[in-house]
């Protein structure tokens, strides 16, 4: 996994609650068997005026000028500021893949749906939960100041505003360690091979019908 230590970037505000993963990446793009290439179709139904079709050249499509990702003041953005319950709905990991492919490395919201939150962490993306009032204040600041940027420091678990304000956030210590080191989950778990084997043996004794074909 790609490491995440520190990040500085332009913030784009998406002022909507309950943004679901169907919205982040519509289902017609889920037919790909690859992990990359989803960026041009991120928020497809909002970024473009026409219907998105897999394989269509997005550079030729009519843009929805009203959608924030199409506003020039947010070009090159890499931090998405969102509202509560971001990433709800489907478990599709294509959602963080699409965000990442587009260039978003950090998502800040008052709350996230759990599967989405987990999926981000497995892909080197950092989902940050801040308090409602803090998020509200960031929305005001982003709207006021063109080119508004934030510094994110994972080690100290802080979001640092241009004004020097430091907003602390929580993160599970195991996930933080994995992100800072860029560790592969599977390789780490396989260090527990003996424990898993031993557990499996005891499970076979307790619930043999799950393992034994004899009926």
């Amino acid at each position: 996994m790609r490491r995440f230590v520190q990040h500085t970037g332009v913030v784009v505000p998406l002022d909507r609650a309950n943004v679901d993963t169907d919205m982040i990446i519509p289902k017609q793009f889920l037919k790909s068997i690859s992990r990359s290439g989803f960026g041009p179709n991120l928020f497809d139904e909002y970024r473009y005026l026409d219907e998105g079709v897999a394989g269509k050249d997005c550079s030729q499509r009519p843009l929805n000028r009203g959608f924030v990702l199409n506003h020039s003041r947010y070009s090159g953005c890499s931090i998405l500021l969102a509202r509560e319950n971001f990433g709800c709905g489907s478990s599709r990991e294509h959602a963080p893949w699409a965000l990442d492919d587009f260039g978003i490395k950090v998502v800040i919201a008052p709350s996230f749906a759990e599967i989405f939150y987990n999926n981000c962490l497995k892909n080197g993306l950092l989902p940050i939960v801040l308090k409602d009032a803090q998020v509200e204040k960031l929305f005001l600041q982003v709207n006021e100041e063109e080119g508004y940027r934030l510094d994110i420091d994972l080690q100290s678990q802080q979001v640092i505003t241009p004004g020097g304000e430091r907003l602390e956030f929580e993160i599970d210590s195991f996930r933080k360690h994995c992100l800072l080191q860029g560790l592969d989950d599977i390789a780490q778990t396989l260090q527990y091979t003996e424990e898993i084997r031993a557990f499996e043996v005891s499970r076979m004794e307790k619930v043999p019908w799950l393992f034994n074909k004899k009926r």
Binding site: R92, E93, N119
Partner: peptide
């Protein structure tokens, strides 16, 4: 439900 990285993790472990 789980994500695809977790699907791979469960397959492997």
């Amino acid at each position: 439900g789980i994500g695809t990285s977790e699907v791979e993790h469960v397959l492997a472990t």
